[in-house]
Design a protein around this nucleic acid. Structure first.
Lengths: 212, 212, 212, 212
DNA sequence: CATGAATGAGGCTTCATTCAT
DNA sequence: GATGAATGAAGCCTCATTCAT
């Protein structure tokens, strides 16, 4: 299919393709300049579309961020489902970590931090972020439990370690130009192995089950 | 200096007290509503000061964030110096972690994420953040080395684990309403102990040297 | 023509039926929300028609108001002609007054005020309004003259009283939620009777001839 | 006082002078082009003021209309109070009618119709219009009662005639270029005299007391 | 003929910054 | 020094109108 045909197909009818196209542009712009420094004009230029047209697909500029977060969540779900089909649980786990935290581009990391920041101001985004986090935790804990190689492994406890670790790596990637992601990931892998092997000491007191 | 004297100094022209007062207001406002949603009018109200007056002490609204980050860095340096005087290195380490990551309020965490986000847009803030991070790392590595209880302890490697972990805890505190900070901190403490005892496996490959 | 046939004619291309259908929708929308607060999308929804289609029948949104005023004028002419066939001049007069001023709905009154307001901005509408007014005056004066029961009756003078009175009743109906139309109409009827009976004093000076 | 000094006095402090200045500009613009066709830029030009500055004195563009209506109401109250001091009730009555309905400029009439039209859309303006109407009615009825020269005079009934008559004259003045205000006013005066003399027949049925 | 997606000018409003007092 | 009224450049969004299908 030619590019022109592709454009026409996109331009015609299919609203979800249109939405996706807009979200692509928003992703690019927000990652590049941040939500607050991106104007609807910037977006229009990036999406090769008039400003007014956005509002046929999204209620407001804020709704674009929400759409972005939602799409990211769906993509995660899809990716997991896809990789789980491979029948290699450990590979899937490492793959997910790699995809979402290790080999993340600086722009993507920046966008992630931006979204966490918006989460603290916008209830809708906060809700979507919480949902993503909950789904992520459920999957991780289940997967860690399945991969545990020793009875001493505490999947929930391990996730309580992994989750902030992964988030912190994203922050480092975004905010520190010289951040050594590889080193952090190597440490994370070693930690993961140790955890699955039951070689990580449980914390002394209660509180070993993460979150609510 | 008494509080009254302090107030008087502030009421009259002591520029550094004035700056501090303004930064206090900025901290409050930015933590409450975020940088982009705080207007100079908000700031003026919070600081009980005319909007025009800010510009005698700070170049611009952006400079306020920079001032905030700088002050935070100085405060960290001061706090460390103070606590190290106690002659209890382990207590100092745990105290610093508690002060900056464990017992952080939600507002403070939010502000921290906000600043990380701004770091990705504003080179001055990025530089200041990088400097803070470098100083933090140096101190942590030195302190971990001093506290190591076994030859297998790898201070730099341990820091490569602790640093993102702590950042991630801040993100969780800020972006997830139900985040269980206590559980994460308990895990961190256990990890720290294990690390200092050399019970954490080093990552297989190198990667412990900074680089990109 | 049956309703079904009418619908079919409308569904197919009969342009004048199409125009009427559009004007119906415009009347509904403008009465409900006013000219300036009605969007072409609102109109499209009301008329069950695409926005673009309006422009095949009317030049612009403004032209719709003009069309509305014109239709209203024609309807008035028709109604008068119809009622005059009854051979009851007095009944016709009272009927017209009732139809146009007494039993007017609030929405209709609102629309009338809206149109007067637009008259002051749009020359085309002003011209149409003036024409309607002129025809109305001619008919009223002629009818009053025919109904006069005493030589002292001054039809033109009486109309100079009736015309603003009727307009004012419409304004009251539109702008004052608690306006008592019935009371005003009762007064108007009494006034009309008195005028036809020559019991109304002529104004001292001239001034009964139009002109500015 | 020089114009420059005047400008300075106006520019300095006094917010109510500033509000008045803005309302003057709004009155001019709204009368000239109507509320919906006047942009904040137009207003800014007319008021020799930047667009942003309006919002220090009025919440929104709509609030300007409300301010205008309110000021008009207050002016009416003031004017009445002033004229009543003259000790000539009949002169006061005729003066008020002249001032507000007879010698009204076309622009003023246009603005009045515009406001009636807005009344049907904006509850705040509707409330203010209703209040003005109520005060107007109270004063008219009291004044008519005081001026009645015969026991047969029905002040409330007379007002139910006068009120729409006056409104209708305003509509005519605004919407009909050739409207003969003088003739209408002459009729109104004659009607008023007849009413005060008890020479107007009461309407047959009840309903002789206007509105609620 | 009809559609409805798309356009893009322009409206209202906000807010960082300035400057006369 | 300090004030706070004023500025004016954008920013988000709406909506009459067009035009490819």
């Amino acid at each position: 299919m030619t590019v022109a045909a592709d454009r026409r197909a996109e331009a015609r009818g299919d609203p979800s393709a249109r939405r996706a196209h807009i979200l692509d542009a928003a992703e690019t712009c927000f990652a590049r300049n941040g939500f607050h420094r991106t104007t609807m004009q910037d977006l229009a230029r990036e999406a090769a579309m008039s400003p007014g047209n956005f509002y046929r697909y999204f209620e407001s500029k804020e709704a674009l961020v929400l759409g972005l977060v939602e799409r990211e969540r769906e993509r995660g779900t899809l990716l997991v489902a896809e990789m789980e089909g491979s029948g290699d649980p450990r590979g899937t786990l490492l793959g997910i970590i790699a995809r979402y935290f290790a080999s993340i581009t600086r722009e993507a990391a920046t966008l992630r931090v931006e979204i966490w920041s918006e989460s603290t101001r916008n209830p809708d985004i906060a809700a979507m972020t919480a949902r993503t986090e909950a789904e992520s935790r459920d999957w991780f804990v289940a997967t860690l439990a399945a991969l545990a190689t020793a009875p001493g492994c505490d999947p929930a406890g391990l996730y309580a370690l992994l989750a902030p670790l992964m988030k912190g790596i994203v922050v480092g990637r975004a905010a520190l130009p010289d951040y050594d992601v590889a080193a952090a990931i190597a440490q994370l892998h070693a930690l993961l192995d140790a955890g699955l092997d039951g070689r990580l000491p449980a914390p002394p007191l209660a509180g070993r089950h993460a979150g609510r």
